[in-house]
Design a binder for these strands. Structure first.
Lengths: 340, 340
DNA sequence: CAGGATTGTGATAGCGCTACCACACCGACT
DNA sequence: AGTCGGTGTGGTAGCGCTATCACAATCCTG
């Protein structure tokens, strides 16, 4: 073994440096006592041999992988992409790496991903696809942080905006501008953030004395294509609503696309308020009004919560609630000031 | 040890099933011979104990992690997000997991990510930030596939579109519509795909008998903010170009934003052709004409190349070149007709 | 019915590290 | 001098698996 062409191990370095395996391991691993002279010899030998430590072996021996698993619905969704960036931002600062798994918003795939990941990570960050949760989530043998959505009866750290209140913001804006028949294009309400947004929508209508018409709520699975189809159904009706609340960015895209195909003008024929802001929203015609979540911060906060647990914190679970804000542009008929 | 509260190991299962460690390991690991009776006993015991195999230990013992590392500039960039989706699509089918690292388009961070990842993955997929490459890339002890960009003198599998030709497509379109002074907003040309696109741009102008004016080429680092600033510089000039070629989606966003701020109408005051299509491009005012890369397929192809190497293929390196196509919408002044 | 192939089982040597222990040495106290 | 804490070093037991061996039992096949 040893020396040949393969990647050098601690033993190889030790031999070359003329010290014991234990000493080389300490110098290389950065633990325990090592004299200055030995350390230098070891470092020189490591450099000459091109030694690189084996993280897998280290993980097995130490019981810590320095890796965090992230399970999300879809990395192509800018919301998740940005969250993962915020998470990576915080984690990488502490030397952790991100292991990624797409659940495709499917409970089965999510469960499998969690199972597969959990033996190779120190902690997990998950946006649970189903609010009823899953065995894998219920007995987490590793620290777990949930974001964007919650799971009934699952008492773990979580971070999200107050979705009901944020949805209220959007609906109130529509109401204030005189819209009364407000439709909704949303994801399945098995997703807790969606159902919370729906709750906020209903509450706001009720407060305004408007009866909720459930037929105005179009649900689709969590994809662009489904959102598009749902929007087409809603806007294709004879008694189409005069405003639409899209509960998520794919849904907003779908409504925009459908309106365009149907030759409907926004906001004149139908107003639109979205949930989740995007870089392109100021750029479309008309610029889209939307609820903006502090997405990057959600990721960062999730990272901080997890880091605290990884550091051994045992306090009761924390629920971090971040504030969302409404970014008013022109798709609801407000401030049609400048252009058009 | 054994039984207590900790996660059960193969030994625990073996003991409970009343078979030897070796037999339990084979049944659980799915290798070697195991009789039907033993297998059942082991499976029952595993179920009762809630056994879950430890991937870290398996990786150390078997020398294979069933994990692939992906090093990209920025997961928030839809291009990379989609590629990673395509990659995951192919890899997960074979039971591989994705380990993700953002390089922020920085050579140093990239090198560190590669170093950190390479001891815990079976193979790497990288979009190299710098065309001159890096030590970590040069002596890959693991299978490596690069995509989108190339590295001088690095002979490894790669997949990308023919960037020069694709850029030519965009520039020719502008030329055919009568635009002569064509500016460029691009990323640093240390990125090989950017420099290839620039090469295509120059070649196309030359072919049309137009002299290249280097002052019309604005470079910025690879961020939205820099793209915006670069676009502002270019469009703010007294002798501003009458058309712009944006070499990447962040650059396209920047140009759109800058034009809007400057009160410039597209395509009347300035035409725009982008590189990389996006869902929102049909939605903006006017709909943006852009070169569309088969992004998902790039990811899939990278996955297939890597999988082949992982399976032991030793053929000389393959360079997969995919075709890009121009999606004509209205931002260059063409077919202001319907909107197809 | 001998003799080889096939199947099932157990024992055990690592994989490349971390972490703990024992020991030796040193200067600095009583 | 005797003893003690701090320091440096080597030895080595695992971490939870995979993989290989040796061996036994069963199965063909001529």
């Amino acid at each position: 073994m040893a020396s040949k062409g393969a990647t050098p191990t601690v033993s190889d370095v030790a031999e070359r440096a003329g010290v014991s395996f234990a000493t080389a391991a300490r110098a290389l691993g950065g633990y325990g006592y090592v004299g200055a002279a030995s350390r230098e010899k070891v470092e020189a030998a490591a450099r000459e041999l091109g030694y690189r430590q084996n993280d897998v072996a280290r993980a097995l021996a130490s019981g810590s992988t320095r890796t965090v698993g992230l399970v999300i619905g879809d990395i192509e969704n800018p919301f998740f992409a940005t969250v993962s960036r915020g998470l990576a931002d915080v984690l990488e600062g502490e030397g952790y790496t991100l292991l990624l798994a797409n659940s495709d918003e499917d409970a089965g795939r999510e469960a499998r991903s969690i199972a597969a990941l959990s033996s190779r990570v120190d902690g997990l960050v998950v946006a649970p696809a189903v609010s009823s949760g899953d065995q894998a989530l219920r007995r987490p043998d590793k620290p777990l942080v949930v974001f964007d959505r919650t799971v009934r009866g699952l008492d773990v750290d979580s971070v999200a905006v107050d979705n009901a209140a944020a949805a209220g913001l959007a609906v109130r804006h529509l109401l204030e501008l005189g819209h009364r028949r407000i439709g909704v294009v949303c994801a399945p309400s098995t997703i807790s953030s969606t159902s919370a947004r729906l709750r906020g929508y209903r509450a706001e209508l009720k407060r305004a004395g408007i009866e909720v018409d459930d037929s105005l709520i179009e649900r689709g699975p969590f994809t662009r294509a489904d959102a598009h189809a749902a929007a087409l159904r809603l806007l294709g009706r004879d008694d189409r609503p005069d405003a639409i609340f899209a509960t998520e960015n794919y849904m907003t895209e779908g409504v925009l696309l459908a309106a365009r195909e149907l030759g409907l003008r926004i906001p004149d024929d139908v107003a639109l308020v979205g949930f989740d802001d995007a870089e392109w929203m100021p750029l479309v015609d008309p610029p889209v009004t939307a609820v903006a979540q502090p997405v990057f911060e959600i990721g960062q906060e999730a990272g901080r919560l997890l880091l605290a647990r990884l550091a051994g914190e045992t306090a009761p679970s924390r629920k971090v609630r971040l504030a969302a804000r409404l970014v008013v542009r022109e798709s609801c008929g407000a401030g049609a000031s400048a252009r058009r």
